[in-house]
Design a binder for these strands. Structure first.
Ligand SMILES: [Mn+2]
Ligand SMILES: [Mn+2]
Ligand SMILES: [Zn+2]
Ligand SMILES: [Zn+2]
Lengths: 158, 158
DNA sequence: CACCTAATTTGTAATCAATACAAATTAGGA
DNA sequence: TCCTAATTTGTATTGATTACAAATTAGGTG
């Protein structure tokens, strides 16, 4: 566990921006706050959430800002084959458990993942820059629906 | 190591198609052969390679076929944030080591990954359907270029 | 505080990988 | 050999993301 966006205060976040020579704009601060409250959101989800607090914001700003945050290493962009990226605020070694039915993503923290991550430095001869570990498994909610009877198994994110 | 596309003979591959009720068309066989010879190719790369052997093939067929192969579980589609999927013929537990400079992807087989994969069944309460483990690290070729002098660090696939 | 300017934001147009669709072709069973 | 559902093809369309230029603004200077 190094440093997670969820645990940054607004002041700490502003320091990070300033340290790298970026301005602390209200748009950036709002996107930061919204990211704290969402779980692996898409750009569109972030946009919709932010328009409530900041109706004039542009979708372009959302994208620019998400890319900036990625560069700063405080979020991780996850591309999917449906061409809608989702953004992970957890940059520590962990597994994204993805339900192929509903698309829900939940984090699984695991000692073996940390061990694997730590072992990669000597296996690769250098410390890797970042990781993305995904595993697909039907979630309990969807499993129950399937058991209960009919479900429209419309596979997502695969 | 279960069953890898690279090791299927054409006959075995035809059996797989027939077993699932799909026709063994020349297009499918050619795409199968090309997949064997490429490393994590994009749809476009596959298309270009196949046009040499099969000039009349349609890009739509490439996509349809790749999706079919994904459904059959013999390849894995890897979505990236640049919106160009790449296709992995290695469906066994392994790590894709991705160079953020040149975009090269190489497989890293590792005992810890197998152990992690095996452990997930009890941690999740069910056997996961598939996985995708990516790690980003600058490859030796790019590392050397960087050391040697000027490089245009144009980050890909991130 | 008022001013200045590079950085940032905004709105709109453009991109382009991927998909939808309907007509043409064909694998493989009868 | 014939038949038909499956498959392929070519073209049009989609839609998330990016490009771009004009408008706005954060934050430094005096
Ligand atoms: Mn995550
Ligand atoms: Mn691979
Ligand atoms: Zn689900
Ligand atoms: Zn490289």
């Amino acid at each position: 566990m190094v440093l997670m966006l969820k645990f940054f205060s607004e002041d700490e976040f502003i320091q990070i921006l300033r340290k790298h020579g970026y301005k602390a704009t209200p748009q950036r601060l709002t996107i930061f706050e919204v990211l704290k409250s969402k779980d692996h959101p898409s750009a569109e989800e972030i946009y919709e959430a932010i328009k409530k607090r900041f109706p004039s914001i542009s979708l372009t700003t959302i994208y620019q800002t998400l890319h900036l945050f990625s560069e700063l290493g405080i979020i991780n962009e996850l591309g999917f084959s449906d061409n809608r990226s989702r953004f992970d605020t957890n940059t520590n070694p962990h597994i994204n458990v993805i339900c192929p039915v509903c698309g829900k993503i939940s984090d699984l923290e695991d000692e073996l993942v940390v061990e694997l991550w730590d072992s990669l430095e000597k296996k690769l001869g250098k410390k890797p820059i970042k990781h993305r570990f995904d595993v697909y498994a039907i979630c309990d909610t969807c499993e129950n629906k399937i058991q209960a009877g009919r479900v429209r198994i419309e596979v997502k994110n695969i």
